[in-house]
Amino acid sequence: MINQTENRGITSIIIENLTDGLLFFNKENKVSLINPAACRVFQINKDDILGRKIDDFSNFEKLSNLFYLLGKEIKEYFKKELEINRDLILEVTSIPVEEKGDKIGSLVIIHNVTREKMIEKMKTEFVSISAHQLRTPLSEINWSLEVLGSEKIGKLTEGQKEVLKKAHYSNKRILNLVDDLLNVVKIEEGRRVYDLIPVDFENIVQSVIKLYQEKIRNKQIKFEFQVPNKKLPKVNVDTKKISLVIQNLLENAISYNIVGGMITIKLENKGKEIEFSIEDSGIGIPENEHKNVFQKFFRAENALKKETDGNGLGLFIVKNIVEAHNGRVWFESIKDKGSTFYFSLPVK
């Protein structure tokens, strides 16, 4: 059996050898432990920092940012991104340490994510540059076909016009796909982070529904919008983005529905959350494909057959936006019966 002292020995060896940086602040917010990984990341000597108060960190070039993040009182964080400079990006976790209910200090864990972030950035830049480069030749084709179609430079036969129309349509589809790619990139990199303002959620849903009234009528769909009697509390959202979420869900419910089917949108107050649900009587999603529904470019087999136009990005975008609002998204679906998609947003 390993005794207490030996155990302590092993623990300190483990801490010394951890690849993540560790700092422990005691009750007075003074550094009482720092491991080599943390020293390496911040390029400091252990002896220069042991016993120092967090306030003193502002005197060290690379530690000052950590101090501005944690503050004098050492705030709690979970995997908070901290950019020290362009070549050093960290993920900081800060947790209070308790012994028998008393706080004895704070543990700060430093995880270096520079490499991951660089790769992410390169990927994003690559996609956005290639998308942009694609747009130029596509615009050229688009405009050239337009000129031909206008017959400004020569009459066309009916057959030629037909071919031209098809080419124009296909070209337009590629252009749309490029737009979608750019949107995905933007959403992934979180560049459109969110002006969250408290809004009346019901109003947003109403205004999206308005946009689709004609489509709903054309397909003779029985549409219902249910709201609770008691007014819903306001939620903090980016109106434009959340509208896009509802649009995508409603569009799916219409596109994959049967003629004369039904759609019900329901809003519910769940205390800490507002829940949105949209139920349809459409083609549903085969069970073996449920796990892929929110992945980008995924399209269920039966959806591919029904609608050739989709691009498999709608629900991916939905998930990203809802999660950026600290909300959740999920669904229930039975093939040939219909689907219900839900998302919830936290109430402040």
């Binding site: 747009r135 130029t136 596509l138 615009s139 688009n142 405009w143 337009e146 000129v147 206008s150 252009l175 490029v178 737009d179």
Partner: peptide, 9 residues
């Protein structure tokens, strides 16, 4: 104007 979104007309 974004070229890809507009026709010449």
């Amino acid at each position: 104007l974004v070229k890809a979104h507009f026709t010449l007309d």
